[in-house]
Amino acid sequence: MNAMSSPDPDPAVALEMFQRMLLIRRMEERLGEVVTTGELPGPVHLCIGQEAVSVGVCAHLDDADWIASTHRGHGHFLAKGGDPEKMIAEIFGRETGICGGKGGSMHVADFSRGILGANGIVGGGIGIAVGAALAAQLDGQGRVAVAFFGDGGANQGVIMEAINLAAIWKLPLLLVCENNGFSEFSPTSTVTAGEIAKRAEPFGVPGIVVDGNDVLAVWRVAGEAVRRARSGAGPAVIEARTYRWRGHVETEKSFLSGPYREDDEIRQWQARDPLAAMERWLVSAGAMDPSALDRIRATVAATVDSAYTRPLSDAYPAGESAFQHMFA
């Protein structure tokens, strides 16, 4: 697969990707603010800085395709078309939440949009995506499944089993590793040997490293892998190198005894902001004039405002709902 041979996206697709990234960024920023007010019942893991990965991949998917996500799952949820307001209602534990308030941040899911769920178990989504890819293959409609996981998740044994099985069965599966430099509080290099993408090689599966802060690069590589998978040629592993700007979990300063990374490192990566890069490209490619940019910003701001306003007046779930849904 040669990423360079792929063309640039249509202007409409490019604009859509920019808007999605901006939506994720602003939604997550607001969540970070809300955390400091103490109104959130549970923990949240923000994906600021990593937006290009979910958006670049999901731009090739529609509701019939599947994704499995992680504890850092808001970006995947929104990139795949999940409803921002229902996500926020869920995180606030309201009955209008996408899971009726019973899942929370780490479990946002919308099966009607092919979102198999965020996951509280690191690596938990990988096997689930393999199963969805199997179903997609059996259906024969050209659907694909994507497992998003972190560099930390790459160290779960299930990854080897998944690559092997998907290769043997030629499953339409993308294993997308968001290498954001940290496995919780451990720098990746201290817990992860070698190159994650290369873990595909012995199985005869393509393993591609891509700049995870460049949404166009992600879009090209993912496009190629999705086409391949849809055509029946089997799985691919994509390692997108990116960086987590925020804490592992928003409340981490309250329980850690000290820092585990240099502020300077964060600043260096912030200078490589995936949104700013895309904005520059859009303008230089003539895909967007400043007024179009303003329109997108205003649309996103309005979506974010209503997502953080309306759910707050929604009720908490009725008591009996605690005892519903264990069995069909």
Partner: peptide
């Protein structure tokens, strides 16, 4: 705890 998974929403969790 009744035979359910632990719910997230604070009032539900408290109830269980």
């Amino acid at each position: 705890v009744r035979d359910v998974a632990m719910p997230y929403s604070p009032p539900l969790e408290k109830l269980v």
